[in-house]
């Protein structure tokens, strides 16, 4: 997409430049060629291709039912996150740190206690808003164990810039320990 955009931008700049160089060349210019070719056919062709691709990727990113997925909860409030993970002895609640197993798709159920916030871990997935009265589900996946930084992307008032959290992705052993309730 980036390369395509750069190419199109280069094309427009080149045409612009040439228009000034060309000064004086007196062949008539055809409106249809410029407008139908450059203004209609060219964008329609590129945009259709891009749109089709975008929609297919979009479909693939949707949270579909899948036996391997794990469901966790994320409740936002000003300015804190409360996460709920399944443990061996019932749900485990944590503050500002979300624990997940690596290599497994996770469905994060997003809710809010007050205003709209958005859950965003740039390296794991896109973002999704937490909206009063409308639980949303975001599919994320950490391919490798590690710590990932997350933040609130929707402006939520004075503490917005500091409304971050961490996601800890465990390997299988670490996850088992976490689920058993041993502090990691």
């Amino acid at each position: 997409m980036l390369a395509g955009a750069a190419a199109i931008f280069g094309l427009v700049c080149a045409l612009l430049l040439l228009a000034f160089r060309r000064r004086g060349a007196d062949q008539p210019v055809s409106a249809t060629a410029w407008i139908v070719g450059g203004g209609l056919l060219f964008p329609i062709a590129t945009l259709s291709a891009l749109l089709g691709y975008g929609l297919i990727v979009g479909e693939q990113l949707l949270p579909r039912a899948d036996s391997a997925t794990l469901r966790v909860g994320a409740e936002a409030r000003r300015w804190q996150w409360t996460f709920t993970q399944p443990g061996t002895a019932g749900p485990i609640r944590t503050r500002d740190v979300l624990h997940v197993p690596a290599g497994r798709p996770i469905d994060v159920e997003l809710t809010t206690r007050d205003v709209i916030h958005a859950f965003w871990v740039p390296r794991l997935a896109g973002k999704m808003d937490a909206i009063p009265g409308r639980p949303n589900v975001l599919r994320i996946e950490a391919h490798r164990p590690g710590v990932y930084h997350g933040l609130c992307a929707e402006f939520c008032g004075a503490g917005h810039a500091r409304h971050g959290f961490r996601v800890v992705a465990h390997d299988a052993a670490g996850w088992a320990r976490f689920q058993a309730g041993e502090a990691p």
């Binding site: 427009v12 612009l16 210019v29 410029w34 407008i35 450059g38 203004g39």
Partner: peptide, 17 residues
Amino acid sequence: AVPTGVQIFAWLGTLWA
């Protein structure tokens, strides 16, 4: 983007002409 493109190419074409 299409009608916007039409305008941009009309402008470029005008400069060209």
